[in-house]
Design a protein around this nucleic acid. Sequence first.
DNA 1: TGCGCCCTGTAACAATTCGTAAGGATTGAG
DNA 2: CTCAATCCTTACGAATTGTTACAGGGCGCA
Lengths: 233, 233
Amino acid sequence: MTRPLVTILDDEPEIRTLLADVLEEAGFDTLSFGRARAFEAALATHTPDVCLVDLSLPDTDGLTLVHRLALEQGAIVIIISGRAQVQDRVTGLELGADDYIIKPFDPAEVVARIRARLRSTKPATQAGNVAVFNGWTAHFDRYTLEDDAGSETPFSHAEGEVLRLFLDAPKRLISRAQMQTSLGGVASESFDRAMDVRISRLRTKLREDPKNPQLIKTIYGAGYIFLGDVTWS
Amino acid sequence: MTRPLVTILDDEPEIRTLLADVLEEAGFDTLSFGRARAFEAALATHTPDVCLVDLSLPDTDGLTLVHRLALEQGAIVIIISGRAQVQDRVTGLELGADDYIIKPFDPAEVVARIRARLRSTKPATQAGNVAVFNGWTAHFDRYTLEDDAGSETPFSHAEGEVLRLFLDAPKRLISRAQMQTSLGGVASESFDRAMDVRISRLRTKLREDPKNPQLIKTIYGAGYIFLGDVTWS
DNA sequence: TGCGCCCTGTAACAATTCGTAAGGATTGAG
DNA sequence: CTCAATCCTTACGAATTGTTACAGGGCGCA
């Protein structure tokens, strides 16, 4: 297990170095940015576990950035802001932020809150290799999918990656960006089509009715959601 | 799927009723306790999704209670305390609390923070996934609307966003500006027309008479109001 | 009442997003 | 090298959503 990666996005250099020092000391890797543009560029090559974001950025609207990060990227987003009004905090949290810390802050509390977030969103990936759901049994050790009658059809590695992602987070919306990062895919301009194809093939193996899928639902413009009662063993 | 259950543990009755009222209004079920003993007894028969805990309790040490709740019960624990020292907050969070809110608090922020925690940990059942109103049943997991005869018509993501907004605040005026921000939309110069179209499409699926809508009423110059007796389940 | 202005409903169109069949690149085994 | 399996890419059709345009209705005012 490597050290969790925390990104710091704040336009004040002193705050960046302060946070970076404390977080490094506390056992995190850090990346600091003063501008949203540089930060977003870095997202192409890094997948941070936690993003600290200051709302008052010179080159973008912080709230829409938070919204994108939280909903599409699925990252843990903690706002660190000087805007202390209750309304600011509420809208920040409602837009997807996981926490809202007010400046001036105490570094120890920042560390404690980051740890609290990491603790609760612990890697949910199951250790087991067999999952049962809605009449199907997925054997990840054998790469086969067994229906309730007992006949098995093999699935490939790429299909298995998507399936495991779904089975780890059932009944939850999974955005394309989340899939992309989770499946280690570097963002290519046509990678989203590849994802579609993977899901299409998986649907075929699950014998989904294309017009009316019961297990893998498409949420147009948002992502996918896996319905199904999953039990790992 | 029921509404999320939130327990309130505080020795001040005014705070209990204040929180209970606000949380019920926000779509949660609540259970209130003034003593840790009564609270722990209730744990035998209830499994709360979120536990609000005041640290200064007369009959137990709040911190050890928090520790037990977080570790053994696996519940989401949010401390609401008058002790505002950084050290208090850090130890509270390190002992397993998911959040630490300082008295005096703003009820809206409490709701927002509870929602943030549920969003990140609970699978899609946060605000309930099924709502019944006036002969209709909305299944937000399957994205379908079921009439009283049992036939289902699907609704799309955009329609679902609007519908959920209405069902979360029935019989209350919702202004266009509120919708815009709630639906995360960046204000575009013609975004209000898009909202109209969404509502128009939703009305069609609800088989509303355009000349005399029963469920979604237009308040000229102000916004919309959703009439209907909503029960989340 | 009649007029003008603004707000709202919605049909029609355009842009975006998604599904999937078909073909080609890559990999590994023999 | 050949073959087969896998998976990405391309291309086109389908579904959805935003945008535009126009019709109709409310509201103030004379």
